[in-house]
């Protein structure tokens, strides 16, 4: 579904992404791991068009999407959440998700009809999936950190993407929230058949839920394979895992 071939990105001489390769097939959960500063977030930004690659190709569903504007890439079916909490803080939880639906159905230029009448059922059903339904009328800045991260996923989900990209979904979460978030990702994949690409620094989570793992060190892809393969790969151990194996 998503193919990244020999991707490079140069920041004034510093190669943040230096030959990244990635393959995501439909229905999989793929994780990108790597030490801090390995270029995971940059890679995601390159895929979603927030940055333009210096060289390389990004293909999505067989189509070249390299360097397209973010909103165009979004319309092709890639949706993402961000590492830092990235919600619409002065809108309610309901409106946060609804906004994504306005965009999905191209209603953002409707000026004279009541916003509150649109997509009530669809918004509610997304909120229900993610367990945010009771909090839907709350101002989103009043949510707990964990709930805000879940709301982010809800927003990403609302544009019913084919591929959901999550940048450190559990960052800054309390252990219980983390557990809930993992369950959520599993559920999204199993019950709704979503393809998910995420990056994470918590190894336990990665090996727990990922179907395949891509390892990045200093901007370069070392290996992509199933968890067992990655776990026992010598290069990976040397570079990153230390003595887990």
């Amino acid at each position: 579904m998503l193919t990244v071939k020999d991707l490079y990105r140069d920041f004034k001489g510093f190669m943040a992404v230096n030959g990244a390769n990635l393959e995501v097939t439909k229905g999989e959960i793929v994780a990108v791991i790597g030490p801090n500063g390995a270029g995971k977030t940059t890679l995601f930004n390159l895929i979603t068009g927030h940055l333009k690659p210096t060289a390389g190709i990004v293909q999505f569903k067989g189509e070249d999407i390299t360097g397209l504007a973010p909103y165009k890439i979004c319309r092709k079916g890639i949706s993402r959440s961000f590492q830092i909490v990235n919600i619409f803080s002065k809108l309610t939880v309901f409106e946060n998700v609804q906004l994504a639906l306005f965009s999905k159905y191209s209603k953002t230029f409707r000026m004279f009809s009541k916003a509150s009448k649109y997509f009530i059922d669809e918004t509610n059903s997304i909120l229900e999936k993610l367990g945010l339904l009771e909090k839907k009328d709350l101002n989103s800045e009043l949510l707990s950190h964990g709930d805000q991260k879940v709301l982010e996923i809800a927003i990403a989900l609302a544009s019913s993407p084919d591929l959901l990209i999550l940048d450190e979904p559990t960052a800054g979460m309390a252990p219980r929230e983390t557990e809930r978030c993992i369950e959520l990702i599993k559920k999204l994949s199993k019950e709704y058949g979503l393809t998910i690409l995420f990056c994470e620094h918590d190894m336990k989570i990665v090996f727990n839920i990922a179907d395949r793992i891509m390892v990045m060190v200093r901007g370069t892809t070392i290996i992509q394979g199933r968890p067992e393969e990655v776990r026992c790969n010598e290069l990976v151990q040397k570079a990153y895992l230390g003595d887990i194996c």
């Binding site: 979004c74 319309r75 619409f88 803080s89 906004l99 965009s103 916003a115």
Partner: peptide, 18 residues
């Protein structure tokens, strides 16, 4: 509502396809 979203979080609105 869309413009309020742009106010609160322009980057996020862009990645919603707006």
């Amino acid at each position: 509502k869309t413009i309020q979203g742009i106010r609160d979080n322009p980057i996020r609105t862009v990645s919603l396809g707006i």
